[in-house]
């Protein structure tokens, strides 16, 4: 994948008081790619996102959008960026339409036709002229998405985007993100606590802990193969498997073994030959949650550095 990145974080650091919140963060985000951003509470996700959306200034390092630094070319770079902050707060005393009009006026390229188009895209056309204070959380999320898409950003930042969406809404949202990523080549950066969400939505995940990027991986990467094996009597089965050089981990009434696919037939064969009753032999995929907890050491909240 030798593409030009849309957004680059270069040696980004942020110190608040004496505490280093973000420490030398480097990250490139590419067109058409959805990158998940994970980390325990207090790891620095929000701070990173705020620096990328122009709300905070980095102590050192820079955010670069298509070769221009955010700090020196604020208006040019921000016109390529769409932001949905956690729980999009709108002007509740105005209608959804007026809110969109408000944000549209802040960008020269957005026309009335574009607002209408975006309203239809997020399925809000029936209630867009009602006051935002009468909207449900899900509708506010849709409005939040609409305002971020108005100016056709090349880069979309989403902070906890599915808060308050119902399952159907989440799926629709996911499909939509995928669509704009594939069709329009938008680069999407999603932070979330919902690991299963990230797993379903993203091509790539970046994991941050204590202000440092600790892992960056492609989701379709071939993982080490694990299999779940259940056979009775269990003790005999475990002895037999250990004798074959497998490392076992007890899981429920069976075991999880780290084993290559090619070995499976011979293992089954040996179990059957030893006259054991085989109930299950199935591929076992560690969930992102397991991997995440493993990597971040249980995900305890990073040392306190309250703002």
């Amino acid at each position: 994948m030798e593409q030009q990145p849309i957004v680059e974080l270069r040696q980004l650091s942020k110190t608040i008081g004496k505490k280093k919140i973000i420490d030398n963060l480097n990250l490139s985000l590419f067109p058409g790619q959805i990158t998940g951003f994970l980390g325990p509470n207090g790891a620095g996700k929000t701070t990173t996102i705020r620096m990328m959306s122009g709300l905070m200034k980095p102590t050192s390092g820079e955010v670069v959008v298509e070769g221009q630094t955010l700090n020196d070319h604020f208006e040019e770079t921000m016109s390529k960026v769409g932001v949905i902050v956690e729980n999009p707060e709108m002007y509740k005393y105005m209608s959804g339409w007026k809110n969109l009009l408000h944000f549209a006026r802040m960008d020269k390229t957005v026309t009335k036709e574009r607002i209408i188009q975006v309203v239809e895209q997020v399925g809000m056309q029936n209630r867009i002229h009602e006051k935002v204070s009468s909207y449900s959380l899900g509708m506010r999320q849709r409005l939040g998405l609409a305002q971020a898409l108005l100016h056709r950003p090349k880069f979309l930042i989403l902070d906890e985007p599915t808060n308050g969406l119902d399952p159907a809404g989440i799926r629709e949202f996911r499909t939509y993100l995928r669509k704009i990523a594939v069709e329009d080549g938008v680069s999407v950066f999603v932070s979330s606590h919902l690991l299963s969400e990230i797993e379903l939505m993203c091509d790539r995940i970046a994991i941050i802990q204590n202000g440092q990027l600790i892992d960056l991986r492609e989701m379709n990467q071939v993982e080490e193969a694990h299999y779940y094996i259940e056979a009775q009597p269990a003790e005999q089965a475990s002895e037999l498997l250990i004798a074959q050089g497998l490392v076992l981990e007890v899981s429920g009434s069976g075991f999880i073994a780290k084993v290559e696919q090619v070995q499976i037939p011979s293992i089954i064969h040996s179990l059957v030959a030893a006259n054991l009753e085989v109930f299950a032999v199935q591929p076992f995929r560690k969930t992102l949650e397991d991997q995440f907890l493993e990597m971040t050491g249980g995900g305890q909240i990073a040392e306190s550095h309250k703002k």
């Binding site: 208006e75 921000m78 902050v85 999009p88 707060e89 509740k92």
Partner: peptide
Amino acid sequence: SQGTIKMLLSRPVK
């Protein structure tokens, strides 16, 4: 206090 400041300042306007 409304929280809208985040929306307002993440726009291409200085």
